[in-house]
Amino acid sequence: MEQFFIFVGVLVCLAYLVKCMRFAKCIFLHFWKVSPRSFLQSMGQWAVITGAGDGIGKAYSFELAKHGLNVVLISRTVKKLQAIATEIEQTTGRSVKIVQADFTKDDIYEHIQENLKGLEIGILVNNVGMLPNLLPTYFLDTPDEIQSLIHCNMTSVIKMTQLILKQMESRRKGLILNISSGTALFPWPLYSLYAASKAFMCTFSKALQVEYRAKGIIIQVLTPYGISTPMTKHININIITKSADEFVQESLNYVTNGDENCGCLAHEILAGFLHLIPSWVFYSSACQSFLLNQYTDYLKQNIHTK
């Protein structure tokens, strides 16, 4: 028994050592500001970004174009895509292709596939998503958009990955970034539906990485917390809440740093802190009451519409 407990202790120490090394690497990459330009360009000529009309998707579109890739912008609103495409072409000189698609529907993928024919796609950013309730809300009180959320947050990831992964597999290179959420890391009461959909993305991404990493393909899931975007009603930026541009610029430094990360150092620290809270505390009635009251008040004071 003594040898067994020594063995278990060694395994625990090794596990924490790996976590510390991963965190140290995040700190190094945060301050070193490694430019991934050559690496990103080596993946292929084109990057495809879903939900490119706003927020994180728009920021990835500009950033990847600045790194020398042509970009395919996919979103629902054509006018937004046209304006973004014009600005990208004028500021970066890269080629831009736009595809109109409503990801709350499930009959759009043949149309998308037709528009992607003939393109050497090296990067896919599965960013599109919807948040039914920014304020903490009980499941039965959330808007009745369940099917739309499933299509947008889950079906889109499966279908877009299926379309593009085939080409990446034949070329034996590619990068897929799946934008999940910090709420995916453990169950979040009062955000139950959204958190569950993002947890699916996490599990799906990490399983695929095991299947395809030997074929030269990187599949990474990002689990950020607060990002100021139209979906979060432009919540005020602070040391934790990042702008979409800040988050995207930093996240690209971590594209080779494991199959999952938060995308920025501040959120890695926050995630580490939250994991120290015992589950019985987090799921207690007092904590849920805090979320429903103090956290709701904080959100109301810090969000605004443009």
Rank of each mutant, 00 (worst) to 15 (best):
L135Q: 11
P136S: 10
P136M: 11
T137E: 12
T137K: 10
Y138T: 08
F139N: 08
F139S: 13
D141T: 01
T142W: 00
P143G: 12
D144T: 11
D144R: 13
E145F: 01
I146S: 09
L149M: 15
I150Y: 14
C152R: 04
N153D: 15
T155M: 13
S156Y: 02
V157Q: 13
I158R: 09
I158T: 12
I158C: 13
K159P: 02
M160W: 11
Q162M: 07
L163I: 14
L163R: 12
K166L: 09
K166S: 12
K166H: 09
M168Y: 09
E169W: 00
K173Q: 14
G174T: 08
G174P: 06
G174S: 05
G174F: 04
S180A: 15
S180H: 00
S181Q: 04
S181M: 04
G182S: 07
T183M: 08
F186V: 02
P187K: 04
W188R: 10
W188M: 15
P189D: 04
L190S: 02
L190P: 02
L193H: 03
L193K: 04
A195L: 08
A195I: 07
A196W: 03
S197I: 05
K198V: 09
C202Y: 00
T203M: 11
F204H: 01
A207N: 10
Q209R: 10
V210P: 00
Y212D: 02
A214M: 02
A214C: 06
K215H: 08
G216M: 07
G216C: 04
I217P: 03
I218S: 07
I218R: 13
I218P: 00
Q220C: 02
V221H: 01
V221C: 11
L222E: 02
L222G: 05
P224C: 07
S228H: 10
S228E: 06
P230N: 09
M231E: 12
K233R: 14
N238P: 02
I240W: 02
T241W: 02
A244R: 06
D245S: 12
D245R: 11
D245E: 15
V248Q: 09
L252P: 05
L252Q: 06
L252G: 09
N253G: 04
N253C: 14
Y254W: 12
D259G: 08
E260I: 15
E260P: 00
E260F: 10
G263K: 10
G263T: 10
C264H: 05
C264F: 08
L265K: 06
A266V: 13
A266M: 08
